[in-house]
Simulated scan of single mutants.
Amino acid sequence: MARKAIHGQRSPGVTTGESRLARIILDSLSAHVAILDENGFILETNRAWKAFAEENRIGIRPDTLNVNYLEICDSAGGDSAEASSSVAQGIRDVIAGRMEEFVMDYPCHSPRERRWFYMRVTRAAGPGPVRIVVSHENITALKLAEERLRRSEQALWQEKQKLEESNTALRVLLRQREVDQREMEDDVLDNMRRMVLPVLERMARLPLPARARPLVASLEARLGDLTRPFLRRLSAAQAVLTPQEIEVAALIREGRSSKEIADQLNLSLATINFHRRNLRQKLNLRNTRTNLQSFLMGLSD
């Protein structure tokens, strides 16, 4: 930021008595550091500052000693004019004691690469004349990581939007499927009432063999259940009831004993009792005083 040079005036009384240790420490810093006097003249720079000046061909001596940094900022034009003006004002505020420090980050791209720097301006501690420390730290890696994070967040947001849209479409399809299923069930039940049950009623009036009459009666009762709420109210349990358990439940509801159910389904009595226990458990009939047949009959109300 504002490191393209113009020649400034020399500042009188430039300090040259820095110790060797201070020079070693200053040159070891990765930040580009310059020391200014109270008028904005550059008194000293470190190795990183000089290397940056040489690499970017700023047009004056690489260490930029005795160049007025404020004048460089004030004379900047083009896209960097506004930011350079803010830098100059920030330095003047620190010199005047109106601010303890001034910080900002800024782009400093070259034809070969994109770069960002973090600038910090502070007063040097201790007695003596005012000395201002200006440092520029390369934060390109951080900025590029932030860009990648923003792109990842944007991509994640877009994927989330797509997922929400898909979920919305799926919910619409499921609702329509439920509507279609109810309509189909209603059609089936209506056809059964009009076409199948009358035939069974006529069969029941025929002189059938004694063994066939219970089967016809059971079939009529089962088909009647389809047109009444019994199986619909049992639907919550149907997800866990097996087809044979549903068949046993229907016969229990009709008042058949375990032996009668076993004979009709050609199963052992132990198997029917096993199904009874499973039905009570799956229908959440924990109280043994609750009659299973009464409960199943209640589903038809």
Rank of each mutant, 00 (worst) to 15 (best):
A48Y: 06
A5G: 01
L149G: 09
T242V: 02
L149N: 12
R233N: 15
E18W: 11
L156Y: 10
F230E: 03
E220L: 09
V67Y: 10
S75P: 04
A22V: 10
R151M: 14
E146I: 11
G255P: 04
I25R: 11
S110V: 12
E55V: 05
V196P: 07
R123N: 13
G8N: 07
C73L: 12
L149K: 15
S75T: 08
P214C: 08
L269Y: 11
S19G: 15
P198N: 06
T64L: 10
P129E: 07
Q89T: 09
P209N: 07
E38N: 05
P229A: 00
L43P: 05
R61H: 13
K259F: 11
R20F: 10
T288G: 03
T227M: 04
N287S: 11
L251Y: 03
P198M: 09
G17Y: 07
V33F: 04
L208A: 11
R57T: 11
R228Q: 14
R177F: 10
T290Y: 02
D93S: 10
E247N: 13
A2S: 04
H136E: 06
F52Q: 09
E247R: 14
D301C: 07
P229K: 03
K143M: 13
D301W: 06
I252Q: 04
C73I: 00
H7T: 14
P207S: 10
R47H: 11
E101W: 05
S75A: 15
E254Q: 15
K282S: 00
W116Q: 06
A48P: 08
R23T: 14
G126I: 01
R10C: 03
E82F: 02
H275T: 03
P243C: 14
C108D: 02
T288N: 06
P111Y: 07
A204S: 14
A145P: 07
D105T: 01
R20V: 10
N278Y: 03
H109A: 04
S19F: 08
L296Q: 01
I91K: 00
R61Y: 13
M99L: 15
E71L: 05
L142R: 13
N287M: 00
E260K: 12
S110I: 02
I25F: 15
E153Y: 06
I72H: 00
L234Q: 05
A96P: 02
A83F: 00
L296C: 03
R3D: 01
P207E: 14
R277L: 08
T45K: 13
R205V: 09
A212I: 13
G255Q: 00
R194K: 14
S84G: 00
L189N: 12
D79C: 00
R182A: 12
N284K: 15
L231W: 12
I24N: 08
S80G: 08
L142K: 14
R177H: 14
G298E: 01
Q264C: 04
H275M: 01
I58K: 06
P12M: 09
R256L: 10
A270T: 10
L174K: 09
E164G: 05
N291H: 02
E55C: 06
D301Q: 10
L189R: 15
V121L: 01
Q281M: 07
P107W: 04
F295E: 06
N68F: 10
K259Y: 12
V134R: 00
S11W: 04
H136S: 12
E260L: 09
N273G: 09
K160N: 13
E101I: 02
D74E: 15
A5W: 00
